[in-house]
Every structure is written in structure tokens, then in C-alpha cells.
Nucleic acid binder design. Structure first.
Lengths: 107, 107
DNA sequence: TGTCTATTTGGCAAAATAGACAAATAGCTT
DNA sequence: AAGCTATTTGTCTATTTTGCCAAATAGACA
């Protein structure tokens, strides 16, 4: 793969990799409902607050979400809601996988 | 996050994680043009054949591609072409990131 | 200023991932 | 069977990611 292409695909992979974690996927899905502060997320995710903050930081670093300060809390929101489209395709993949598993068991 | 939800999001993350690598993204993009054997991919990617095979295996394991045998070679093709839709969104994210970088440099 | 709440960051250990080489496997072809 | 090509798998090392605790930072408010 030529260096130019490699760089391009690495940039793209960085964004997708940010989505490639159960907690972060959940966060993105939650943010579809509206902006939320770190403490809201912490309550829903149930991990250490520092862990939650790091996950949100990864999403922000990737450009998927943005944050703004409000008083002493930080509020996150979806910067690129198009990532929600990932879910449709992912569900299609998972459904096909389930069908194949059934067929394998039958055969 | 309740265990049921956690499992769901981990399944989803598994699929997305398979896409979260420059080489594998490149492979998916190449497969848009049509099915290809491992040796074709190897020539394009330029890594060790075992590495290429492993990457394709990860995509297959995730249900994104399928493979079939033809003589002594294995031919891979897209099982769920909907993953190609990821690229549109990812480009949107990257473009927004570039705009922000420019604004930061100006301010 | 001191204190409280919210969030981020440093640092560490465990786990997962990536990539290479060598060896094993599978299917031609002679 | 022997030799050849294509692919996969075992194993190892290096790197990255994850998640927690503790400490640092930022803002609100008495």
C-alpha cells in the first residue's frame, strides 16, 4: 500500500477505532437523545468516572463528539450524528451471522 | 450498563473493531471492486502473506466478508457491502476535523 | 481563602492487538 | 509419492488499549 493511501486509511481507521468499543458505542447511542454531562454518562455506564472521561475524550479526539463547559461540568454532544448510521449496518451483519450459525448447527 | 445491553454493544463493537484498522479498511475498499484471492491482496497490501491472511480472517470472523475455495486458492468477497457506507461518514468527520484545525491555527 | 463538586491527567498492571517467521495444511500437477 | 503453490496456524515480541486509583485542575460558592 503506497504511503499516501496508507496515511488516508490510517486516518479513517482512527475514527472507526474510536467507535470500536462497547462503552463508547453506548455513549454515542445515548448522545442521540441529547447532550449529556460526564456525570450523567457515569451514572449510565457504571464505570469509574475517570474511565468514562477517558472514553469521552477518545470520542472527542476522533471528532465524533464535542464538549463545552457549563459551570463546573462538561457537556458532551454528537458532533457528527452520521455515526449513528453505523448501527443499521452493524445490525445487518450481526443478523446474517446469526442466520449462518443456525445453518451450521443444522448441517 | 445492564449486562444485556452490554452484551449487545459488545457484539456491535466486535464488528466495528474489525473495521478499525488501516489494512482491513483498505481490503474492504478493494473488495468493492470484486472478489479477490489472498495473493491478490498480498500484492496490494505489501505485508507478509500470513499477516494478510490474518486480517482477512478477522474480517470473515466478524461477518463482513466471506471466503470460498477455488482450486488451491481462497477467494474473499464482501458479505455485507453496507460497511462501505462507513466511508462517507468517516470522511465527514475527518473534514470537520480539518476545518477545526484550521480555525485553531487562526485563533 | 477554604471547601465542595465535576472533570481530567499521571501512572501502573492486565489484557488485547499487530506483525513477522517458521511450520503445518490443502490442493494441484507430474 | 514428490514437488509446487496458496493459505492458515503456532509462537514469539513489541505495541496499544483498557480500567482503576490517586493526584491535579477548574469552577461554584460560602
Amino acid at each position: 500500500m503506497e504511503p499516501q493511501w496508507k496515511d488516508l486509511y490510517e486516518d479513517r481507521a482512527r475514527v472507526i477505532k474510536a467507535m470500536g468499543h462497547a462503552t463508547r458505542l453506548f455513549m454515542v447511542h445515548e448522545l442521540e437523545k441529547g447532550e449529556q454531562c460526564v456525570c450523567d454518562m457515569q451514572a449510565k455506564v457504571g464505570a469509574d468516572i475517570s474511565t468514562v472521561s477517558r472514553h469521552l475524550g477518545i470520542l472527542r479526539e476522533a471528532g465524533i463528539v464535542t464538549s463545552r463547559k457549563q459551570g463546573n461540568q462538561v457537556i458532551y454532544s454528537l458532533q457528527c450524528p452520521c455515526v449513528l448510521n453505523f448501527f443499521n449496518c452493524v445490525e445487518t451483519v450481526l443478523q446474517k451471522n446469526r442466520q449462518h450459525t443456525i445453518h451450521e448447527l443444522r448441517s
